[in-house]
Design a binder for these strands. Structure first.
Lengths: 224, 224
DNA sequence: TTGGCTCGATAACATGGGTTTTGTCGGAGA
DNA sequence: TCTCCGACAAAACCCATGTTATCGAGCCAA
């Protein structure tokens, strides 16, 4: 990125704020005018069926934009909610859109972000559509492990910041069954748990159980 | 779109070709140098598990680009295969990338395309993760109905160009169960079938069974 | 005509995961 | 200290969907 580009990015107006777990950052149907860049903490996107069933369709990690779709789409098609306490930078959409069209490097970086998210969606479709509960959960744990490491430099053990109900909503399972499967992964020695702290004990076996292949994360292009 | 923009688009180098059903346009892991614009016919994206199970993660319709992700991602994360006989325009990725960064209107149009596809992925996640087989299938039929109409101006009846096995692969179901559910939708009077011709008989009831809400298709922004 | 292929229909049976319920545990507050 | 509440745990039961198998229709090539 050139010096001129850096200057453009640095000139972006923004406002840092902190929000509490489970507060809504965006609701389906809204027409937002600002876009949030996650500095610390986790958020998730969810969609609801009319009878109140929830599907968590993605997890948003530090260093990512929470709602790139609203750069060019007018009406939000899903909710975004804070998973943990969150600090974020609010940027006016108009300024970000201007940046995308005027600065090639920044535009490319945002394109890559958006395309990687799409790729993750596709992998989740495969996961939910074609794998059983055990592989699904193992896959999610593998993905978290890798994404945490690249976004926070953490170790193979990490604090899993989701309740079993939320895990179920991300996997298309009931909390009861998530519980069963977590226990079985633990007694089989693939993972260890202490409260919500999940550690990967046997990465090769967990990866095999998950059929995990990190290609879909496009890690080589993930930092820019 | 201004006259100058139009000239830029018109100046794109391209090559029209026709391909037969089920030929691969792209395979996972490849590094393509050209991008296909679908002129006529249908294609689909699929992902495979190591043991050969398939999930169809999206259907690509006329007027859409088949592999926008490869504009900025180096390695493809899924396969693209022709569903019907297909005529398409091959465009060098370098030219398309140049267009995106030099022509604001074209760049915006491609952004919108990519973001809508992401939105459809999210809706499919909700569909597969949280709806039962009947709603899932009804939802897919509703989506096809709407998208065909906007892309081909067709009526509420359309030629469903997928085998029951392919439908199952798109919905995370077995072909046997797809057959059961199709039959039940037919005997309940929601749809009619004659060979692969599917007609929507009772749109309100089908839409209700599917919990279908077309917001996620962002139709207002779909033509540009 | 024959044979081989794919697709769809249907039946009998098996099971993964859902549902319901009841209980335990630990932290937050009074 | 006590109570309240949310998350986790575990057992019993059941149903939606998967599995396996068979058959026929349609199509195409030899």
């Amino acid at each position: 990125m050139s010096a001129a580009d850096r200057a453009l990015v640095a000139a972006l107006p923004f406002k840092v704020r902190t929000i509490e777990p489970s507060t809504y950052m965006l609701r389906e149907g809204q027409h937002p005018t600002r876009c949030a860049f996650i500095i610390e903490g986790l958020a998730y996107r969810q969609k609801l069926t009319p009878d109140g069933e929830r599907e968590i369709v993605s997890i948003i990690m530090p260093g990512e934009f929470a709602d790139l779709q609203n750069l060019f789409l007018e009406e939000s098609d899903h909710d975004i909610q804070a998973l943990t306490r969150l600090t974020l930078a609010d940027i006016p959409i108009s300024a970000l859109r201007e940046l995308v069209t005027s600065c090639r490097a920044a535009g490319e970086a945002l394109w890559i972000d958006a395309l990687i998210e799409s790729s993750i969606h596709r992998e989740w479709l495969l996961n939910i559509g074609r794998r059983n509960a055990r592989s699904r959960l193992a896959h999610l744990l593998c993905e978290f492990s890798v994404r945490f490491r690249t976004s926070a430099g953490a170790d193979m053990a990490y604090e899993l910041p989701m309740t079993q109900e939320q895990l179920g909503d991300a996997l298309g399972l009931t909390p009861v069954h998530v519980n069963r499967v977590l226990k079985s992964l633990e007694t089989d020695g693939l993972i260890a748990r202490k409260k919500r702290q999940v550690s990967v004990i046997d990465w090769p076996r967990l990866r095999d159980a998950a059929e995990f292949n990190e290609r879909y994360l496009h890690l080589a292009q993930n930092r820019s």
